[in-house]
Design a protein around this nucleic acid. Structure first.
Lengths: 274, 274
DNA sequence: CACATACGAGAGCGCCGCTCTCGTTGGTTC
DNA sequence: GAACCAACGAGAGCGGCGCTCTCGTATGTG
């Protein structure tokens, strides 16, 4: 990244910048994003507040840096959890990635609030934050893509007729074919393979994942839909936990999250962990 | 609630309190919770800031009042949407309630952030906020409960063996009551009626809804689980939309939300809208 | 060595939540 | 009607915030 600084001044600058960032991260962890004050950070590193402006032009710039770093940390954590499981065990990878995601968030509620909570008023995240922000969903998509390539299929869309009697939901959770049940009652949706509104809706997401090779070219729109749903469900669940909306409903949030993640995996047709 | 004030002073107090609340709500709508400053509100009602403290002892007290009012407004909105649909049409009620929920949030992002975003640092919501906060989920639960009573069954839990090969997914989305299929669907993983970890996990939630008569006494744990999941998914989806995480993935957030709500209803076994 | 730049400290701007004092006014009690 | 008290609005002031500007000094470069 940065070459070794040649001058004492450059070295000092690098060191101090890092000290400021460390102090800011500590403040973020303890007080949350809204409580992060540049003046407090300055005191923590024994500076007067105006001196900090030599290193960060504004509080927002400092926040942006923290934002990028946190997205990167979270993304790396989830990537590593995924990489730690045998590639064929998509169920194990799914659960590991989901768990890593929550663990990181729960251990760093301040960071979570910064990344996924209320945006800071008047603060617009710059473009540099986009790429790091996508790392988590990319991991999830890759797992789903691998499972899809191995035959996993998401739940049929509501309103769809149960098609040819073949294994539409076959791999849901157990891998036991529910297939022959087939021929559900009720209205026939669109003919199989027909272009639907839903295809348009997530077309850009689908293009993105296919072009990056995260999922097979023939990946079903329904799998894309369910993956996006799972993504927001996972963070919604963490958000509810950290922001206190599950109090009284769920006794053990860790186990609850596991249940949620397992069902989301099942809905995507990902087999149970090996 | 409040009797007609007899004295001019009491009348003035009531009027001014309401004016302050109105101004605060306007500020909340335009600037979000973090930007809501008591001084700005004071200026809006042509007072000096210290005078506002005659009416609200602190900014937090003002926020608490807004919080309660907003929860009430949202709850009422969702209740009315539910009540506007024929009672037997659980699918229609589900979609209407879900839509009303999002519409309210999207039209009032500041309120949404206050209710479901990052908690204000150092602010703990008092007990009075709990009851109003539960109105939305109570509506959702009642719809699911009514559907359950009519035979709707949630997806079987992952890990459950697919039982008799009968129409497991028959009622999903299509509107056919799974009722007469009897014996049904579902949970065969553990022996029928067996007590599982998941039962413990959501026991308090299950007790709550059964005791209040929101769902039949025999309601399956799996329906409770899927309802809680749907609840957090709905708000997670809105959160992702309002906080900018869906940008680039989904082209039309209104339609996307409908797709999500429809699938959640299907997963719960709620029939399609009439 | 001279010059330019980077830097830290300090003072100060307007904003914030909140407290305290003080004069006034409304309502109650003789 | 007079006396009294509580409610009220205004103002000043506390410390803290983000941010700007100035000034003396330290550092690196020609």
């Amino acid at each position: 990244m940065s070459s070794t600084p040649r001058t004492a001044r450059a070295l000092a600058r690098e060191t101090l910048t890092q000290q400021i960032l460390d102090a800011a991260r500590a403040r973020l962890r303890s007080d949350g994003p809204a409580g992060l004050s540049l003046r407090a950070v300055a005191r923590d590193v024994d500076m007067v507040s105006s001196a900090v402006y030599r290193y960060f032009p504004s509080r927002d710039a400092l926040l942006t840096r923290l934002l990028i770093d946190s997205y990167g940390e979270l993304g790396e954590t989830v990537e590593r959890a995924d990489a730690g499981i045998e590639r064929d065990d998509t169920g194990g990878r799914w659960l590991a990635a989901c768990r890593a995601l929550r663990t990181w968030c729960v251990e760093r509620p301040g960071d979570f609030a910064l990344l996924y909570g209320t945006p800071i008023p008047g603060y617009a995240a710059p473009q540099d934050t986009v790429e790091p922000a996508t790392r988590v969903i990319r991991v999830l998509v890759r797992i789903v893509g691998d499972a899809y390539a191995a035959g996993a299929r998401a739940l049929p869309p509501p309103g769809a007729a149960n098609g040819g009697g073949s294994a539409d939901a076959s791999s849901v959770g157990t891998g036991a074919p529910a297939g022959e049940a087939g021929a559900g009652p009720g209205e026939v949706g669109a003919p199989a393979g027909a272009h639907t509104d839903v295809d348009d809706l997530v077309a850009s997401a689908r293009d993105y994942v296919v072009q990056r090779g995260l999922a097979p070219e023939d990946v079903a729109t329904e799998s894309v839909v369910r993956t996006l749903m799972a993504w927001s469900q996972l963070f919604g669940t963490v958000s509810f936990e950290l922001f206190g909306h599950l109090v009284g409903s769920v006794s053990d949030t860790t186990r609850w999250y596991d249940e949620v993640a397992t069902r989301l995996g099942a809905d995507l047709g990902i087999p149970a962990p090996a």
